[in-house]
Design a protein around this nucleic acid. Structure first.
Lengths: 168, 168
DNA sequence: CTTGGAATGTCAACAAGGCTGACATAACAT
DNA sequence: ATGTTATGTCAGCCTTGTTGACATTCCAAG
């Protein structure tokens, strides 16, 4: 019952975890995810790409030189599905696939300048919204936001997420 | 340096809102949403349904007797897309579409017993995960979670969300 | 050196679930 | 009587996921 937080509504009533409260959280996730993807989606549309391209660009940018297999497991799709997306990005000169140095079977993936340009554009659009949401909610809310999201992930995915967490 | 919260990292440093921090939030959303949908997806698979069916069942259950048009705007899809899903659910006897009493052009949508059964199963699977995440993160985190999600929605969607917020 | 297996790429086929456009019907509203 | 609204439906297209099959390349173990 003891509640020190500055946050009205954050108190002991949430400990009940009624189905009603859980349902609100579920709907919030659904609607927020729509907002989360809306801005990049508009940009992607202009370029004739989809969300799958965005995800690929994001994680290649995130981990320069990552392999196809790494990307596969991070994204949670099949190689065929990823390959189609990747092929498009390579053909359009946004992504470069270099033969691995140590293991020449592998392909190390990099963004070209053109690829970085689009990635930055997409990321910035998404960050604008996140930034606004973070500012509106405040730092304590942001900490809670991330705690809950983290707890919501599958265990193995959480490992992937954490290993990327403070990466280069 | 002052840190009162139970949470190292939840303090004033988050006010900086670096691109790095925003990126972590973005990735958390991506991975968490996968977890969020994973359990219902497995159940839906057994029934030969997809996420679209889940969403329809959820919001029909949410607002008994809602019209097709209402559902359309809530879900943010076209009537053709919704109709395909709805047709399947009606054929399989999970949803009933009754001609409107006041306006006979409208169809009021209801879950049958069978529909309610599946909806409960899906909702419970999703709630189990939410409940676990909420418990792990704590009530204050949950409040923050919802604040950020709410701030992340499109303005018009937020209206829809809020109008649904405290039930009919 | 040969062979097994791993990493990757590619082809084909399919399905879900979005979309647009066009058209039909019924019912309300003026 | 006419126009508008709500709904349904058909057709066609796209993205993005799936499985299965098969080829290539190349490392590594024997």
């Amino acid at each position: 019952m003891v509640q020190r937080g500055p946050n009205p509504g954050s108190g002991e009533n949430l400990l009940f975890l009624t189905d009603e409260q859980l349902r609100k959280g579920i709907e919030a996730m659904f609607f927020a995810y729509r907002g989360f993807t809306a801005d990049p989606d508009r940009i992607l549309d202009e370029y004739g790409y989809g969300r799958a391209h965005h995800r690929a660009l994001h994680f290649i940018n995130r981990s320069h030189g990552t392999t196809v297999n790494n990307l596969l497991t991070t994204l949670g799709v099949t190689k065929q599905s990823l390959n189609r997306v990747l092929r498009g990005l390579i053909e359009d000169g946004l992504v470069e696939a270099r033969v691995g140095r140590t293991d020449r079977r592998e392909r190390n993936l990099f963004l070209t300048d053109k690829g970085q340009e689009l990635e930055r554009k997409l990321a910035e659009a998404q960050r604008v919204r996140m930034r606004a949401a973070y500012r509106a909610a405040g730092p304590q809310a942001v900490a809670g936001f991330r705690q809950v999201l983290e707890a919501m992930m599958d265990d193995d995915i959480r490992q992937t997420y954490l290993s990327l967490k403070d990466g280069r």
